[in-house]
Nucleic acid binder design. Structure first.
Lengths: 111, 111
DNA sequence: TCTTATACTTTGTATTACTAAGTATATTAT
DNA sequence: ATAATATACTTAGTAATACAAAGTATAAGA
């Protein structure tokens, strides 16, 4: 029952969180999943099947670009995702939307 | 572009907000729309076509019950929606989910 | 050798906010 | 009287996304 609401409430915010994590530096998929888990203190536990479609969508929208890493030794090849200028701009906008909505929720829930 | 994110971010929270507004007293559709608008300071501007499907869903889930008002004078008949005990319990649970998710978002966005 | 972690891809499902169109009555302004 | 607006509820259809699940493949450790 609660999972239903949890899933719905996450809609829209994951794009924002992924862009935020990429803002400091380019990262690869597994790294994003780990940071999301650690920084949110276990609240955002993404499956890879959830993250990659988000990254592909962000790439289609030109908010991120991806590059395969040079083969360094025997390292499994990694695809690094880097935020674009447009991505940074969009991140700021999405953050404003989030602030406005969470403020609105607070006003109703606490009023 | 932003409308897309705004719409997604509202998913899940509208049920919570409607239940919250019904917690203090039974209300009819138009009244809910007005209170949502006022209390959220223009953030949640629901169309009737958005609200009623939510109310029907809540009713299907037995979180609210509806009663048509007695015909008082020439008043247009109104359908009052009242939160159930199960609805109150679910509201508390959804609120916990919301708090956990918004805390998680904050941790990532501010850290 | 087996398990686990790393790493990316694709397909399909369930859910929900919103638009739009429809029906109908009461009140207010012209 | 008439027109416009506010009130009040219903239904059908669209777009978007979190997630599960299944698949492919390599590296490291027990």
């Amino acid at each position: 029952m609660n999972e239903k609401y949890e899933r719905q409430m996450k809609k829209g915010v994951l794009d924002m969180l992924v862009l935020k994590l990429l803002k400091s530096e380019a990262k690869y998929g597994y790294q994003i999943i780990q940071e999301m888990k650690e920084k949110s203190e276990e609240t955002f536990l993404l499956k890879d099947g959830t993250l990659y479609p988000i990254l592909y969508r962000l790439e289609d929208d030109k908010l991120v670009v991806s590059k395969w890493s040079e083969a360094v030794g025997k390292q499994v090849p990694r695809k690094y995702y880097e935020i674009t200028e447009e991505g940074k701009k969009t991140l700021d906008e999405i953050e404003d939307v989030w602030k406005r909505i969470s403020d609105g929720v607070l006003r109703i829930m606490e009023g």
